[in-house]
């Protein structure tokens, strides 16, 4: 069983974002970086599948040098090796181009199972996993919140609106895109963090995998104009609580 999990490094979403000088993306200096939340579920599920089948698990990430830091977490969670596709301009590429680079890397490797997050927290297109599946002509199933493997077939639960789940069966090879809540991602233990440092990390030049270009221009990034005209309360906790209580009494009937 050959398994691939694709992860993206994204900023902490609590960050204060500024627009980059070229107006096309957010400024990337001074941000705290972490693994895209959806991808953590992908890594966990991939590691569980590797443990179940005794398979071989590669983690892949596209980006500048710093994404290796995030890949180390995936290695510490249980991936066997890292493939860093080095690309300083990946933030300007559209989902088709990114998906094509992954497919180009994966096409002759014989992966039975590919995991991705259902979307990234920064760009949020929810396209890359499906594009990879289409380009590799593998089964592709999105938004999974349940995953079972048995004899080269998978049974997954797709999350639908209102909490309903669709049960879908497919043979391998397949790509699944992972939704929040698929599992409980493990925390890397200290011994595993130490072990991860010795694991193989290969770097591939992104240009070598990039044969298609983007179908879509990046578009101008902006900070949305605040729509909410709400009242902001700052200051000491005691004062805020006092004012909140007064407002709740005045504006609602719940304490009447």
């Amino acid at each position: 069983m050959k398994i691939l999990v694709c992860i993206k490094q994204v900023p902490d979403m609590e960050s204060k974002f500024k627009i980059d000088g070229d107006g096309l993306w957010y400024e990337r200096d001074e941000l705290a970086w972490r693994m895209n939340e959806y991808d953590e579920y992908g890594v966990e599920q991939a590691v569980q599948l590797k443990e179940q089948t005794g398979g071989d698990l590669t983690v892949l990430s596209i980006g500048p040098e710093r994404v290796k830091e995030t890949m180390k977490k995936a290695l510490a969670m249980g991936c066997d090796r890292g493939v860093h596709i080095s690309d300083d301009l990946c933030h300007l590429r559209d989902s088709f181009e990114i998906g094509s680079m992954i497919a180009e890397f994966a096409k002759d490797k014989g992966f039975d199972m590919i995991f991705t997050g259902m979307q990234s927290q920064d760009r949020g297109s929810a396209q890359v996993g499906v594009i990879v599946a289409e380009l590799l002509e593998m089964e592709g199933i999105t938004t999974i919140v349940g995953f079972d493997y048995h004899q080269h077939r998978i049974t997954v639960r797709r999350e639908l609106e209102g909490g309903v789940k669709a049960v879908v069966e497919a043979p391998l090879p397949a790509v699944v895109t992972c939704q929040l809540g698929l599992n409980i991602p493990r925390y890397p233990t200290l011994p595993n963090i130490m072990k991860a440092k010795k694991k193989e990390m290969v770097t591939v030049d992104g240009d070598e995998l990039n044969r298609v270009g983007s179908l879509q221009q990046p578009g101008a990034m902006s900070v949305p104009v605040k729509q909410g005209g709400g009242l902001y309360l700052d200051g000491q906790v005691e004062d805020i609580a006092e004012r909140l209580l007064a407002i709740i009494k005045e504006k609602t009937s719940v304490l009447a």
């Binding site: 900023p11 974002f17 949020g124 879509q216 221009q217 990046p218 578009g219 990034m221 902006s222 949305p224």
Partner: peptide, 15 residues
């Protein structure tokens, strides 16, 4: 379209 949990947005032209 939104980006970064709606803290930012991108405006895209149809080319």
């Amino acid at each position: 379209v939104p980006a970064c949990n709606s803290k930012l947005s991108r405006t895209v032209e149809i080319t």
